[in-house]
């Protein structure tokens, strides 16, 4: 099957699943225009996300939604896309998240869309437990590549987390690759930072949200790639 038609199939499948599961509202809450420059030259596209929040008593709520983006790199005929459906539940200091995704870019870190990944489907899960200002949790990712090798990758990342002028998280990644990670989300989520050391390769991602403009600026850097982008929300 041609790579382009595989992507379309994945996108359509995810779309149908999402339409079936989110029947309450079918209106995208946030739309944005990602525009960036990376190893495949300039790229521009459209990002969409929709989320419904349902209250679970006094101490809990449930978020259900879909989101993703489609961009067209200047130096490639193949579009880059990543779409996911998710459910996140918080009940007191216990929370979990389940996400099913498909795309041909890496799972975005702060919406950084790195390319050069084979089309794949996957799942991300996370369970977290806080004790006031400190807590811990475990996150896991599994993805199956839709290529001749049918390659399978997974990672399990236990982490500790604490809140001090924002959320700080330190994690270890085990599985197909070994890594160490640190992430920070400022209290109002205006600045977000993620640093990961995987197999002696350092990756660095940062996202700035401008308060006075509906614009987010991001930079992503791995050992062999660097990408900067602007997302204009409308």
């Amino acid at each position: 099957m041609h790579a382009g038609s595989r992507i379309l199939l994945i996108i359509c499948t995810i779309g149908i699943i999402a339409l079936g599961s989110v029947t309450q509202v079918w209106a995208f809450e946030a739309e944005d225009l990602p525009f960036g420059f990376g190893p495949e030259g300039w790229q521009a596209g459209l990002g969409l996300s929709q989320e419904t929040i349902r209250s679970l008593g006094l101490f809990g709520y449930e978020k259900t939604g879909i989101g993703g983006y489609l961009t067209l790199p200047g130096m490639s005929e193949e579009p880059s896309s990543w779409f996911a459906g998710h459910k996140q539940v918080f009940m007191g200091n216990i929370g979990y998240k389940l996400e099913l995704f498909a795309g041909n870019t890496k799972r975005p870190i702060f919406s950084t869309f790195m390319t050069s990944v084979d089309p794949h489907v996957g799942a991300y899960g996370e369970v977290s437990r806080m004790y006031g200002q400190v807590g811990h949790g475990i996150a896991g990712t599994a993805q199956l590549f839709v290529n001749e090798l049918e390659q399978f990758e997974y990672s399990i990342s236990p982490y500790i987390q604490f809140t001090r002028q924002g959320i700080w998280r330190f994690s270890v990644s085990l599985g197909s690759a070994f890594g160490l990670g640190m992430s920070y989300a400022e209290s109002s989520e205006r600045i977000m930072l993620d640093i990961m050391l995987v197999n002696e390769g350092l990756s660095f991602h940062v996202l700035f949200s401008l308060t006075e403009l509906p614009v987010k600026l991001g930079v992503g850097m791995t050992r062999d790639q660097m990408q900067a982008f602007v997302r204009y929300q409308f």
Partner: peptide
């Protein structure tokens, strides 16, 4: 307004 340490957010109802 409820401050929630689990995700460092404030839920407003």
């Amino acid at each position: 307004r409820m401050y929630q340490p689990i995700n460092n957010q404030i839920a407003v109802r």
